[in-house]
Write a protein that binds this DNA or RNA. Structure first.
Lengths: 359, 359
DNA sequence: CCAGATTGCTTAATCGATTAATCAACAAGG
DNA sequence: CCTTGTTGATTAATCGATTAAGCAATCTGG
């Protein structure tokens, strides 16, 4: 396998074979009219020279850079690796490179990040928007991955259904009192997950939502969530909208001497990297980022193609923005591990038992 | 703030003002000889048109794309967000975009990923190599971020010193028996961390290394690490080379009814996102990725500049590869949280006490 | 008052690939 | 035999910015 030599262009091959560069271009692209034998010869020498077309030259002529931008609300997000990996893979398969841009949390920076990408003339952009953000209209196709209930969403996991799966699973195990743990009520994703969970409460069930951000605004950042009290109130199922919060809940419960899953159950979302290695391992819901990414990239590249095709000097609309896919939501999969178990017989009195009864 | 209009080029500004495009280019670049008033007028109309230079056109002419590649061993790595964020920020500040490439774990894919970046003609590459990998010689500047003891390393955290800080801290708290938990003995980073820890064992101290990969090869993936037995053997300090393993150890210990930090201490590395939210929060060592990234990018852009300057038809060396920085290792900072505490008075007998004594 | 320097701008080539337009050669049909 | 069609290639323009070279006009010094 020869490394791409910078010293080979269409022209070089052309002069070497005594033909014009146009013919070489046609031969390699399989377009135009080139005799079969010459085409063969051209391909052979191109291969022997380790010729790699210059993306730059091509981009200048065609107006397509074959690069997509990926804008994330916060690269430090623990979910980011999954997203980036899936997008990179899907994009790569579709012939695109991926340029990353961190919107760094705040909204102005998100716009700035998008503009930087546009200046680098990306062909399209994948945005995982910061909660509550609307993506401004830019002159390029944009795929949004957020939640089905976000206006303009292209494709995403079916968070609502994921929430349903969690509560169905726990109800089956006998649980009736659910403490739903979210971080921020402005997030569409979190609201969907919580909404889905609420929608499947069993007949005699009850649910309460604990928003961590509100809680910390009162009690201070990093303050205990007071879950021991919640257990005393009879809650036996602690369902977080993220594995991160689930882990927080789990360790707080364990620290308070409450046994998981013997006394109470804990569930999360997203199957973050640590979820399978902790003890007890975390029951969670995983999204199929591979499929989501592929749908997003497919929708995007379709839009890019039709855009460039429909632009022979026509109306210069700030064309195609929010891209849509046929399948707008991808089911989530419940991953049952060790933190979810059958409801204890007398959950209400459990906290009165001596500590350390677990295991 | 006007969004970049695709409909404005140097030529457009030129014809609009009745001058040549060369003059416009010179005026905006501050090069050549342009009268002050004309330059002002040009800048003004450029601004009013929302002119953005075409990176593509410029790249074709100058041979510099202002894009760097970032190759990671595995995007799913929990440390990836920190790295990517820091690199993106430093690169962005230096005027570069960042193209990501997942080497997907295996070594062949790492080479393939690098080649894909080269085909996109990036100006340079930042590689966080897969353990034990040597980066092949490509025709572009490469900055390697791994460990000071890796040959060809450009810059990295001082993992050895980080390990020292951990053991110094725990020795101060009275600990003498250290169980060092690593994943894979082939990793230079992990070896440095463990080496640093061993180098600071107190006079009457002892240390044993538990390699998780070996352990799992025998006992099966996800098998308990048997830490309860280790506690019985008298170990009071459990020092992992990553927060992920520390979390695994912590939850296993807690599940076995061993109190942290009252009975034993646990430490990690890297200050992963969950480390501050768990109970008890994890004592760890953080690397200054911001500084590391800046040093790497600075070294890289220096190499890129001298490379293009020294290329006026000179020897076509497969020029400048492994880039070096002046400061090759950046100190790590100990973050003391709740999992590290003073050694219990009678640690050797602790396991004989009834469970649930903690808190 | 004129050679030479300086200033201010234009011409034109270049980077590499793509593609519409053109052209020569030859074949087939009326 | 002349017209039309087809094949296989070349020419040349184009994308947008950069930059060496060139050319007037103005200024400077002796």
């Amino acid at each position: 396998m020869s490394v791409s030599r910078p010293g080979s262009s269409l022209n070089e091959i052309a002069t070497l074979l005594g033909v014009s560069s146009a013919t070489v271009s046609n031969a390699l692209a399989g377009k135009g009219r080139v005799s079969a034998e010459l085409a063969d010869k051209i391909r052979a020498t191109a291969a022997s020279l380790g010729y790699t077309p210059s993306m730059t030259g091509r981009a200048l002529r065609t107006g397509r850079t074959q690069v997509l931008g990926l804008v994330l609300p916060n690269i430090a997000n623990p979910l980011f690796p999954q997203i980036a990996q899936a997008i990179e893979q899907a994009a790569s398969k579709a012939g695109y490179g991926v340029l990353i841009a961190d919107s760094h949390g705040d909204i102005a920076a998100q716009t700035a990040a998008i503009n930087r990408l546009i200046e680098r003339s990306v062909d399209g952009i994948v945005v995982v928007p910061r909660r509550g953000t609307r993506v401004a209209d830019i002159g390029r196709p944009v795929a949004v991955i957020d939640s089905p209930s976000t206006p303009g969403n292209t494709v995403s996991a079916d968070h609502w259904q994921g929430g349903q799966a969690v509560v169905d699973h726990l109800a089956e195990l006998g649980h009736r009192s659910f403490l739903l743990i979210g971080n921020n009520p402005d997030s569409n994703v979190q609201n969907d997950r919580i909404g889905g969970m609420k929608s499947r409460l069993p007949a005699n069930g009850r649910a309460e939502v604990l928003w961590i951000e509100n809680h910390e605004k009162n009690k201070g950042k990093g303050a205990p969530l007071g879950l021991k009290d919640k257990v005393a109130e009879g809650f036996t199922a602690f369902c977080a909208v993220s594995d991160l919060h689930a882990l927080r809940a789990l360790t707080e419960l364990q620290g308070a001497g409450i046994a998981v899953p013997e006394q109470v159950s804990v569930t999360g979302f997203d199957d973050l990297v640590f979820s399978s290695v902790i003890t007890p391992s975390l029951t969670t819901v995983r999204m199929d980022m591979g499929t989501i990414a592929e749908i997003a990239i497919a929708a995007l590249s379709r839009a890019i193609e039709t855009e460039t095709k429909a632009l022979p000097e026509q109306l210069r609309t700030t064309s195609g923005t929010l891209v849509t896919a046929e399948q707008k939501s991808v089911p989530m999969a419940l991953v049952v591990r060790q933190t979810s178990g059958r409801r204890a017989l007398t959950p209400q009195k459990m906290d009165l038992l001596p500590e350390g009864e677990h295991r």
